[in-house]
Design a protein around this nucleic acid. Structure first.
Lengths: 338, 338
DNA sequence: TTGTAGGCGTTATCAG
DNA sequence: CTGATAACGCCTACAA
């Protein structure tokens, strides 16, 4: 593998000049430039970005830490950060935590060793040591999906409380009184927790007693959603509607209910969260809270690169979420159809 | 940021020794080792993997190039390679080509500049310059998903021809004569092309004339699947069954057919390809050809790391695919139910 | 506009 | 078991 030194010799110039034609072509006379370019060709020169990173202390690489790429909502935001990064000639290293805090800490460590310029994290534990350390050491990172409205850490997310509230409110307005919730484990996701707070608050505001039996916490999987839904609808005084803390769980929940012979949405209304692409491709089409995942990733990358670029002050971007009413929710049994 | 030099000074040893306690702790006396370890703590030393990569010419990073992380099947294989890589302390840089060959070439270039030790590629163009160059320069890479049974390039995939054949055969056996195919553009995926070949061969073997009007090529998206299905079922002499070259398209196709008032599967049988997780969570549950995506990614990573590790000879791993019959396919109209 | 030379943090070789 | 020191490939003052 040839280096700029080889090129330099071949072209009869110094390495500095070669470096210049690579990084700031205009600062070198056209004649020498073509001479160098030609030399690069003939010795099949390949640029070594690693060496550059080593010399400049900028790897032009960022790390992206998500729970799991299997959940389409994370695939979507991942695409958002990739596209933005790509456009800025930045590469992204991806890591899955599988909702495990130790994995998250491990990933942060490895990625920093790899000298990533910054980190985008959908965290499993907003109060964990990993983030605290990053903060202390003033390492550039931005949180994705979390509800952070102020404070010292950068974030782009949505108001998860509000989202949970709206989802529940939609159900309440349809006349539902027994409203269950299938939620990802609170210990592993602040998003889920905040959505649940919104759910509780909404019930309260509408004079509906909170029944803790109607809450099922589960791991974030299709089967988790399915089993949790089965559990809830098997209760003596079963819910007539279920709010799932994400679409992935909702898809599972729909299957669970169906397996027990429930007719959707007649027997059971379901509302999800995220609005992943397939949400509108299933039967019944899923009513959900839409959050702009791609945009979130995109903006997250933008924010991060800005911070890396020198803008020091942390900043929070709070995007809008909205209720998308489709077919999976309907009037509560006994409520006249208008 | 402190370096091993700082640590060395603090501990009163040489940088070589510090390097040793990092890379081969047993080769240094326990006493000095603890001395060094302590010094690392006190000056908050952080290992610089980039510098290591620079010195050793091994970045411990691999590149993963896929069409798009949005398709759950690629998310699954991505997870497979990530998990294997992670276990070997290797990081993976992810890139989407969006089925564009120039993007693929660009990615290969950038990733090589980043000094990745190898590449795993789900290619858009098996005969493109990108791969040819890699081959010529003997750069370690392995193809994913493609049908490669021999030759000079490493690959782990399935027999796509056979998969297409089996999918079609299933339909034929159900009595279907008019069998359409919704396929991703052949120019962008050899997998799709091979599946189509299998489809044609199966028709031929069963004395069914091939009708080119029953083939719809499309881009790889839910909407692409939807629109293509609509087109096919709107034909005068419409198909009673459709084989979609992947599940993602199949999901779209199901929606398209429904939007035109078709009752699934009674009016139209649909078989997909991949067996993505949600395939069994939609209504009707999707009949499909299962390919072991996670395992494929996992093995791909394994194969690649072996090649990087010195094993020179390219090798092909051909995994088994299988027909999974679920609810989206049924007897052709007019065929007695048994 | 171009060249010289030191430096980035780690590994690896060779002595001791 | 430990130390000294030369790479590794590129960038960047500083000089010319």
């Amino acid at each position: 593998m040839s280096t700029i030194l080889d090129v330099a010799k071949l072209a009869g110039v110094s390495t500095a000049t070669v470096s210049r034609v690579i990084n700031s072509p205009k600062t070198v006379r056209e004649k020498t430039r073509t001479k160098v370019t030609r030399a690069m060709k003939t010795c099949n020169y390949k640029y070594n970005a690693l060496a550059r990173g080593f010399a400049t202390k900028q790897s032009n690489t960022i790390g992206l830490i998500i729970p799991t790429i299997n959940n389409p909502v994370f695939a979507e935001s991942t695409r958002g950060v990739q596209d933005y990064a790509d456009q800025q000639k930045i590469q992204v290293i991806l890591g899955n935590t599988y909702y495990q805090n130790d994995q998250e800490e491990e990933l942060v460590k490895t990625l920093r060793e790899k000298q990533v310029d910054g980190l985008i994290i959908t965290t499993t534990n907003p109060r964990g040591d990993a983030l605290k350390t990053l903060l202390d050491e003033n390492f550039p990172f931005v949180l994705l999906y979390s509800t952070v409205k102020s404070g010292p850490l950068s974030a782009v997310g949505i108001d998860n409380f509000q989202g949970g509230y709206r989802a529940t409110e939609h159900l309440v307005k349809l006349g539902h009184k027994r409203i269950g919730m299938v939620a990802g484990n609170f210990s592993k996701s602040d998003r889920s927790l905040h959505r649940w707070h919104g759910y509780r608050q909404c019930l309260k505001n509408h004079g509906i007693d909170y029944d803790k039996n109607l809450l099922a916490q589960t791991d974030y999987s299709l089967t988790g959603g399915r089993d949790s839904a089965k559990k809830l609808v098997s209760l003596q005084n079963r819910p007539t509607a279920i709010f799932c803390s994400n679409d992935y769980l909702a898809l599972g929940a729909m299957k669970g209910a169906r397996e027990l012979g429930f007719n959707l949405p007649k027997d059971l209304s379901i509302v999800g969260f995220d609005d992943i692409h397939i949400a509108s491709y299933v039967i019944p089409e899923l009513t959900t809270i839409r959050q702009p995942a791609y945009e979130m990733g995109n903006l997250g990358a933008k924010l991060l690169l800005q911070r890396i670029g020198g803008k020091i002050k942390p900043e929070q971007l709070m995007l809008e979420s909205s209720l998308i009413v489709r077919e999976s929710t309907t009037k509560a049994p006994g409520i006249p159809n208008n």
